[in-house]
Design a protein around this nucleic acid. Structure first.
Lengths: 252, 252
DNA sequence: GCGGAGAAAGTTGTCTGACAAGTAGACAAA
DNA sequence: TTTGTCTACTTGTCAGACAACTTTCTCCGC
């Protein structure tokens, strides 16, 4: 059960979103085959009992997602390579993905990023990491919130991987956890030593990257992310075979 | 103001797309700060000399991308966590990411997927992999196109990772290469032994997963993806430190 | 009968005007 | 100062119209 963010209680009734969600489901479920033509806007507006304006805005979202392509005069068609274009966490439908699944993907990419950062980082990028680390250090001693610096630290590592795509992806994934980082950096988290533990792990990752030791960076990053997940109450399967099968059995 | 005249797109002129692209750029470039209110629809329609309908559709895309949130009666605002919501390859702007960068991300995730699939795959999932492998085998002997079976094989592994998010992400990333898979499975590729080499690598990955050997699966998957990149003329940096720094130097 | 030109119908793209729903700031009253 | 109301403004939705374009069908010449 994913912890919903703040303004999720009130859901402003928006017709175009509802229509868009229905069409999204129909397309992904295969009710409309790839390449097939959608009903006309007039027909859809009739079916949903809304104006064509609403239908058009709904379809505009599907086009933005790469699910639909439209040709003036011909109609709107389900994209041939279905589901192309964008990748979103919530999958659009039910929030099927749990926190531990998002965290595992994050772990995979961030560990790889740390590994590469150890080998490719420029002095400037190392400096950016050090700056974020220092900001967390300050926040820790003053008992302030270092969540943003925490975020920056992770993104700095991803950027230092030398692959801008990895940088963007880490920034994207970590945003899913921007709210979840709070427990570590809350007043209780800092007092209880959670933030201190996280900072120790951060230092280990940083030193490994600074030393250019890819294997050590990999281990330190993995250790940090698994621990971070634990601080959030999320169980992330590690890479160890024995542990993995054990955890899997436990989760199933 | 900023007279960024819309770049002539090859596609049929679509006003809402052009307006959306301009607003997209302005937001990402920071011309509109996160949390800041956008100009009203009436004002934008005046500035771009288009109707409010066009402006609304452009903003609908930005809302779908999570760049903008709108509140009836209040206005449209730049999302506070900027760029949230979706992850797209082309970044929306210029196609900055090169093939080797996309391939590296793909390699990271698919290798991890194979590793996990070796430990978690169910008999049914193993069967799905075997089926895709067999279809490629048939295509190979008959000289037919096995690109789709190739795709299915990779996706089957990702699905067997036990993390649906990984499955979806691999499907997403591999779609970027759906066109690029052609060289391997073209008539020349099959005759020239490219498809045969790929199939040997596929078998190695499959057998490692079937045997439940995570480390072997990891190595086989990495070997396959690096070779596959080579067949497309893409240089993917491997994980070896010496190689990495060498390649980086060569690419820079 | 067959092929091609052209008309006709249908569909998306855009424009215009209007009203409902909701918000924020000003202002008056307690 | 606080509270309630009012007003101007903004987004959401509706309806109708026309332009641009595609597809289909008809009709004509052969």
């Amino acid at each position: 059960m994913s912890s919903d963010r703040l303004p999720r209680i009130l859901r402003p009734h928006r017709l175009s979103e509802e229509v868009g969600a229905v069409l999204d489901r129909r397309i992904r479920s295969g009710a409309f085959a790839p390449g097939e033509r959608l009903p006309t806007e007039a027909r859809l507006s009739e079916e949903f009992a809304v104006s064509r304006t609403v239908v058009r805005e709904a379809i505009a979202r599907l086009k933005a997602d790469g699910l639909v392509e439209s040709r003036q005069g011909a109609g709107a068609f389900v994209a041939r390579p279905l589901g192309a274009g964008v990748f979103r966490m919530g999958s659009g439908l039910a929030e099927a993905e749990g926190a531990h699944e998002i965290f595992e993907l994050r772990l995979i990419v961030e560990v790889a990023a740390a590994e590469r950062a150890a080998l490719r980082r420029t002095p400037e990028q190392l400096e950016a990491m050090a700056a974020a680390l220092a900001r967390m250090e300050v926040a820790l001693t003053r008992g302030e919130d270092g969540a943003m610096a925490d975020d920056d630290f992770h993104c700095a590592i991803a950027t230092a991987s030398g692959n801008p795509l990895i940088g963007r992806f880490v920034a994207f994934v970590s945003q899913e956890f921007s709210a979840s980082r709070a427990p570590t950096w809350s007043a209780e988290g800092v007092a209880g030593g959670l933030a201190g533990a996280a900072q120790d792990e951060h230092r280990a990752v940083f030193e490994a990257i600074a030393a250019g030791d890819a294997e050590l960076a990999r281990q330190a990053a993995q250790q940090h992310l698994v621990s971070a997940a634990g601080r959030l109450g999320v169980v992330v399967p590690t890479l160890l075979a024995a542990d993995l099968q054990h955890i899997d059995k436990g989760m199933a």
